[in-house]
Design a binder for these strands. Structure first.
Lengths: 339, 339
DNA sequence: TATTTTAATGTTATCGGTAACATAAAAATA
DNA sequence: TATTTTTATGTTACCGATAACATTAAAATA
């Protein structure tokens, strides 16, 4: 700002070499003599040279930056869930010397094709899109121009994605309850504009069938991935005389909402009703009773998506990319045998 | 990738105007005739033109991007605390059409001067540094070159900063306990390489003095802003025969750690010992008993820091910038009158 | 020693925009 | 009508790097 920043040319002048030789030193081409390299580095240090990465990007036609679209929802925009994905992504980008651009976005409100604009802007070499919605047609445009992208937590066979194994997760949850002796298992769904929610719902249904358990429509309610909505929706469910003995919730926040309703009715978790969540967010282990839930390895999902994106960028692999990461059941205190 | 991206020149050719005229349309200079503007926009849409923001940055000598250094600590790297700051920052940057670059960093490990490299790289027009350490000399380099920066949660009068009013926060906490009737108030400090921790500690001491309460060295322990360390440190504190009736903890995680130790000893919160935290992270309201704590308006801190940084960038204001944001005591269930 | 290969450096053009200045045509003023 | 001002557009140079090709000097080989 104050002092104009030194450029390659400044060094070249002082070292009495061409600008190109200096460039070679800083882009580590290893074809500059030892003496010249040292002389140049010395001058660079002295005058405080740092490469202009914007100029480099323009010339190289790559930015060594990846963009991440992050949903702006729930509590402000980032819950701990997304935070962990980001953490995993950043571990990988740092390792390979890439920068990270963040694009918080309200997927529902935003109508212009921001993905395409960013893809075309040369700001980033590839993008990761976290939790896009099922009907988001803009993803097609990325595919059409063959721009490197990965969807995280959006499973769709015609796109590149990295996702948790939601089908397995829901199956584990239902089986766990079944093993404990539950036969009347209700389900709280998330917003069905996310494949997460759809996959968990379908897997719940399929697992019930394969276990020959009763599948009642009234036992499937929609909490829209919101604690409050789950609380409200559960009122109806819990009015019935024929109460379920267990409720499997599509995420932990909803599980907490449902538990609150249960307590309000003077019932106990897990004595009267067992609860299983999904995600294993930090709070799950802090509440009382601590929540039995399906753990997703969020930071691994982040890492994997970044690795695959970099491989796409560097043409080590080709689309389509369909990657499922493992999930595990974490058995805590919100589940027990039914009375 | 597949198709080469169209440039201004492509449009200029088709529209039979100079490249400059097209440039004027997209940089919204409003000095191009209506007909030409429409013609150009039509062609641009047809051939799918999007400006190359890297080239624009190089020419403009500004990137319309701000960088955020985020501490990579505790749970992976981002806790909900930092998440909210980021959210506030992003609200402002989006409003003013700035992009956001994220630089997760381990302030302790990283020894090279990444701040300066980034500042000199032209990638960003200014940077926000969240929770830098007290002895971080690299900040001086930013100041020296007069590069726009703001420290968040690091109060130092020789730097630009936006911080919560920690002094007031600690005072409110101690006063609250005093008002309830507590006279024996212990303190769990955070890492003293953060001004947060220092300010809270000093304010605790000063408030005790002004209330003429007993200030015992043994009642000040260090939990290093870690739940586990606070748990360990509190073992010693809670061995004493002369137990405090209340413990004020420098953050919520440490408060939880201390409570765990208290429960382990068969004592109750708040019946035997009252607990106050600091920060008001999400978990604080979920645990039982819910935690009385000092609420920081994190997203506002983020907003304010971004606003001030943009003002610095656009030379609407000049350093130094010293901004304190308000804090509030949230009275929940972990505090009560002493027995 | 003559010739080929390799290593080190230089030259030129370009990446895709924009600033600054120049110019021509149209509109406003004298 | 002549002159000045405004509006619309064009020309040239440059932002700071790198790719691709060219050249020279030194080392290796014949």
């Amino acid at each position: 700002m104050a002092s104009n920043k030194p450029t390659l040319q400044d060094i070249a002048d002082k070292a009495k070499v061409s600008r190109m030789t200096v460039s070679r030193v800083f882009s580590e081409k290893n074809n500059v003599s030892k003496e010249t390299t040292e002389k140049i580095k010395k001058i660079a240090k002295k005058i405080g040279y740092h490469p202009n990465l914007i100029a480099r990007s323009l010339s190289n036609r790559k930015s060594k930056t990846i963009g991440v679209f992050v949903p702006k929802t729930r509590h402000l925009f980032l819950d701990i869930y997304i935070t962990q994905i980001l953490s995993g992504i950043s571990d990988v980008t740092q390792e390979f010397d890439y920068s990270l651009m963040l694009f918080p976005i309200d997927y529902k409100k935003e109508k212009s094709d921001l993905y395409l604009s960013i893809a075309m802007s040369h700001l980033v070499d590839g993008i990761i899109l976290i939790k896009t919605k099922v009907n988001d047609k803009r993803i097609d445009n990325l595919k059409a121009i063959n721009f490197p992208y990965i969807l995280v937590n959006h499973r769709n066979n015609s796109y590149n994605f990295v996702d948790a194994n939601n089908v397995k997760g829901a199956k584990l949850a239902v089986q766990h309850l079944h093993n404990l002796g539950h036969r009347k298992i209700a389900f709280v769904s998330g917003s069905l504009d996310e494949t997460n929610a759809i996959d968990r719902l379908n897997s719940y249904k399929n697992t019930l069938k394969s276990l020959k358990l009763l599948l009642k429509k009234e036992w499937i309610i929609n909490g829209e991935f919101s604690k409050e909505k789950a609380y409200e929706a559960s009122k109806e469910l819990l009015k019935s005389k024929n109460l379920p003995t267990a409720i499997f919730c599509s995420d932990d926040y909803m599980a907490i909402g449902v538990m609150e309703r249960i307590w309000e009715m003077g019932l106990s978790v897990p004595n009267d009703i067992s609860i299983v969540g999904f995600d294993d967010i930090e709070i799950a282990s802090y509440i009382k009773p601590s929540l039995t839930t399906v753990h997703q390895h969020m930071s691994k999902i982040g890492e994997k998506s970044a690795q695959l994106l970099l491989d796409l960028i560097n043409k080590k692999i080709k689309p389509p990319i369909h990657e499922f990461l493992n999930v595990e059941l974490v058995d805590r205190a919100s589940t027990s045998r039914p009375k």
